[in-house]
Design a protein around this nucleic acid. Structure first.
Lengths: 399, 399
DNA sequence: CCACTTTAATGACGACATTAATTAAGCCGT
DNA sequence: ACGGCTTAATTAATGTCGTCATTAAAGTGG
């Protein structure tokens, strides 16, 4: 709606952004490839590319195959032009990873958290220590780090400084960005962990090529990341996509959010285990943590009709939840991720079927329902893409 | 993601689009206002504006107030630069309206439909006849009509030609655009009626100023239009926002879509009346049509606890549905519209309260829940804005 | 070794916005 | 009535940038 003004400079910036983005996501490519994919003229591409090479952002990488005629040079983003830090602030640990510009993992470090009481200052300390640790380990100068992306399992309100609300950590309006910014000058990008995971899948995993996709994450809790037009949808205050706390069973099971009948109260790992426990007439499910308890349930399903029923119900609930996403967002693709969804991968056909029963035919036929490709640890990878996304959109100019 | 290339010409086009859009939505304005709001320099604004005046798109309209200094001229979109046709294809009638460029209604005509069997060709015929009728009545030359916007109560898939799926009309993959295009050369824009109504409320009603809003429509059926970043969200095949068929009560009442427990099966007017009938142990609700039956229920609520209970339940269901929208889309504003919602306006406080119980606190506090301002007939008005939106985005150049 | 093809680089040209300077058009007080 | 002041709009000079047309470069194949 509110269009920004355009000036002659912004033309160059836009074209730089287009070429850089294309090279980053689909590179290496030749100048001619860029001509074809962007619609720019040959001289314009050459001109911009020569700037980018001079700035060290892009490098030539050998000649392409040719059958007659001058062979074209391959171009690619220079892998060591800059480095990225990605952070995953989970409920049980803080994980800090360092990547080069080609998203190759260079170093990582992990700090366990006491889930009982997680102090924001402690988390901020871990993040800062982690940045020092990974840059030190890889021998990367802090000045060469383009930015730090942080994925947090909780609602993140963007504003002057990002503020975190995380029920599971007992956080309410924690000014995490301010706490971390006090200890570093690096640009910070804080976002919800589901959204960063979605971003990773979008660029490097099951979302590649889609313009409209929903990434549905099932772990202990349940969340979603919505990508519309290739970009993560954030809404007014960045908390869009709280799929786990949509009502699926009006007046149903109490959810830890305080409401009744939330999706999470049925298909979150904690809820699945609890439903199994109830189905066993209160007999506890063996296992020292949720992951092993869920696996116990899956093992039991081979022999126990009770366990089988719990899993069938889970697929049906999940399918209905997915159907809601399909009806509301009309995505090309729904990607199921999170550790519980991956453990329950065998339920995928049943989930598809249940979704087909509850969704409208037309949007359902447009959407494919798939499993994620990158696994759970991609939260940090996705977080590291946040500074890159900004950088690419800005045409490769640091703010 | 896929950025379009920019050329020198596109700079002018973008700036024209920015000025025109601002003038259309917030005009009349002075050149100085435009300088301030767009960030363009004075000469650039003057230059573009003089082009627009020369083309007849914009006109000067008197001097503005001034306390010292040369008074600035007011600028406004020329109301008679072009005309728009808006069409509302409902379940019981086709309504065709003609507007000038200031969206003043000049003429309108209505054709009743037999809801039992509605032939696509018949509807197309009504639309074509309606275009002739309204332009004839207002003395507007067809060449001066910028385009025809059509809001249809059904799922509209955009493609080469728009295709309509409308359960209520018994339509499946009806190539409505092709049928109409056979009889006119005017540019056609077909969209879902809920989306066009949302567009009208967004530009001229309860949505003004919001960037993220959801328009929830409750009539005989239930639908929604989602606006993200000021633009209607369509999804992969334009069917996004099918709120009425999201599951609210897992395994609950059968819906006419074939699934169980859809929101529409609880809060659609038809469903409300049916629930009331059941609460009356099967005694039919008096009234010859849904509207009068719903009013009978509302009247009864003053004296009957049974009726009161049905309405209270309705507010609670609706609130839970709204909470789902808030959790998923994180809008600044939720606008309730549709004839049934307007009849039930007194339930608004109860709906707000119920939404607060089921939504997460953070996004709930960001969102206001309001009634629509334009009434039900704004479908055609919103449809008429479709050609304008295209025209403004193109910088005031016809394709 | 030369014709042919494809890629890359140059130069003339035109579209546009920007800044700085001018001109236009009104207030106000004497 | 008439300068002085303020704000609005236009003109002039400057610089950015993409396009088209042309030239240079770098291969393959007979």
């Amino acid at each position: 709606m509110e269009l920004a003004r355009a000036t002659n400079r912004s033309v160059r910036l836009r074209n730089r952004a287009a070429l850089l983005t294309k090279l980053f996501l689909d590179g290496p490519l030749t100048r001619q490839d860029l001509v074809r994919s962007t619609g720019l003229s040959q001289p314009a591409v050459s001109n911009v590319v020569s700037d980018l090479i001079e700035e060290g952002l892009v490098a030539e990488a050998g000649a392409a195959e040719s059958d007659g005629g001058r062979p074209s040079m391959m171009l690619r983003i220079a892998p060591r032009f800059a480095f990225l830090v990605g952070v995953d602030v989970g409920e049980t640990r803080v994980r800090v990873e360092l990547f080069d510009f080609a998203m190759t993992l260079l170093a990582s470090v992990e700090y366990p958290l006491d889930p009982a009481r997680t102090e924001p200052a402690e988390v901020a300390g871990h993040v800062l220590a982690g940045i020092d640790a990974v840059t030190g380990a890889a021998g990367v100068a802090p000045a060469d780090v383009l930015g730090v992306g942080i994925g947090v399992s909780g609602v993140v309100s963007q504003g002057e400084h990002a503020v975190v609300h995380a029920q599971a950590l007992g956080w309410d309006r924690v000014p995490l960005e301010r706490l971390i910014a006090a200890g570093t000058d690096l640009p910070l990008h804080i976002d919800n962990g589901a959204k960063t995971l979605g971003q990773a899948e979008m660029w490097f995993g099951a979302g590649r090529g889609a313009r409209h996709a929903v990434f549905a994450l099932v772990g202990s809790g349940v969340g979603a990341a919505v990508v519309t037009g290739g970009v993560t949808y954030r809404g007014a205050s960045s908390s869009a996509g709280e799929w786990g706390h949509t009502t699926l069973v009006y007046g149903g099971r109490p959810c830890r959010c305080g409401a009744l009948g939330c999706l999470e109260a049925y298909v979150g790992a904690e809820a699945i285990i609890e439903r199994y426990r109830e189905a066993r007439r209160g007999r506890p499910v063996p296992g020292e943590d949720e992951e092993s308890q869920l696996n116990a349930l899956i093992d039991d399903a081979a022999t126990s009709a009770t366990a089988r029923q719990v899993l069938d119900d889970t697929a049906a609930y999940l399918g209905a939840g997915v159907a809601n996403l399909i009806n509301l967002f009309n995505p090309e693709r729904v990607v199921l991720g999170g550790w519980a969804a991956m453990a329950l991968a065998d339920l995928l056909p049943a989930v598809r079927e249940a979704a087909g029963r509850q969704a409208l035919r037309q949007p359902y036929e447009q959407a494919s329902i798939e499993l994620c490709r990158l696994g759970v640890d991609a939260v940090a990878l996705g977080a590291a893409t946040l500074p890159i996304a900004r950088f690419l959109a800005d045409g490769g100019v640091r703010r």
